[in-house]
Nucleic acid binder design. Structure first.
Length: 260
DNA sequence: ATGGTAGGTCTCCTA
């Protein structure tokens, strides 16, 4: 039985609960992983999603900042959390389904403006976060596992509107893209979007600061779905819902979806 | 090279 899994940085779940409903109705994924919910667990509008068939949820909420939430139509056997860098940030939640499939929902730090670990503590945090994933969490190859979310890194030249213009911009520096590639290679993770679309521009985020996001089209692919090799073989389809960036009061990220 | 917008709020911090 196929399973469809989506990821979306929603930038406030309470402000955009109607957008989430609309997306769930049209795309109908089995699982939706949200990032930047900016909401404590007690205030999540979960009943709204229950009515649409998402009876199971796993959340790590936080007031004002971060926050991850995974909605599921399928029963969740186990939920776990990682406290990356020991900061207590709500940036990860993992669910395990009845068949043993594990889905890690991550919100990797954005990293601030200056791409220098000595001058910018936020960039240092981002680098340490990914180092920790590489050295401790995913240091060995895994099976039946999906890692997804807002990674805040556009790894390939075709993941940004201008490779040259963004080489010194946080999200596309060589330090970040090299580290992400090392993490990927260490666990033999497969970027399922690039499996289906090996070349050509792909974006999942467009800045709020453009006069017209569609006309300027200065996007970046910051959101990713990675699968362990056994699962990646069964990857059937990948979609980016770019049109959602044009909805009323949109998030700056759009949903991405994979079918296995 | 610069400055542009959005969300939640500890009216500033984060993205």
């Amino acid at each position: 039985m196929p399973i469809s899994i989506a990821s979306w940085n929603i930038n406030s779940i309470r402000l955009r609960q109607n957008s989430v409903r609309k997306f769930l109705k049209t795309a109908n994924p089995d699982i939706l992983c949200l990032q930047e919910t900016k909401c404590i667990d007690e205030l999540l509008p979960l009943s709204v999603f229950e009515k649409l068939g998402y009876q199971y949820a796993a959340s790590r909420g936080q007031k004002s900042y971060n926050g991850v939430l995974t909605l599921s139509k399928r029963e969740i056997k186990k939920t776990s959390f990682l406290d990356m860098c020991g900061k207590g940030d709500a940036r990860h939640v993992c669910i395990e389904l009845m068949d043993g499939l594990k889905i890690h929902n991550f919100y990797i730090p954005a990293g601030g403006d200056i791409p220098d670990t000595k001058l910018n503590e936020k960039f240092n945090h981002k680098i340490n976060f990914i180092e920790e994933l590489k050295e401790k969490i995913f240091s060995h190859q895994q099976k039946k596992t999906v890692i997804l979310g807002d990674f805040n890194i556009a790894p390939l030249p075709d993941d940004v509107w201008s490779h040259k213009a963004l080489l010194n911009v946080v999200s596309h520096t060589e330090q970040e893209t090299t580290l992400l590639r090392e993490l990927m290679e260490k666990g033999k993770w497969v970027d399922v979007f690039r499996k289906h679309f090996p070349s050509g521009k792909l974006y999942s985020w467009w800045s709020y600061r453009a006069r017209d996001w569609k006309i300027s089209n200065r996007g970046r692919r910051l959101d990713h779905i990675w699968a362990s090799p056994d699962l990646a073989k069964k990857s059937k389809e990948c979609k980016i819902y770019s049109n959602i960036r044009g909805w009323d009061r949109p998030s700056d990220h759009v949903p991405i979806l994979s079918v296995f």
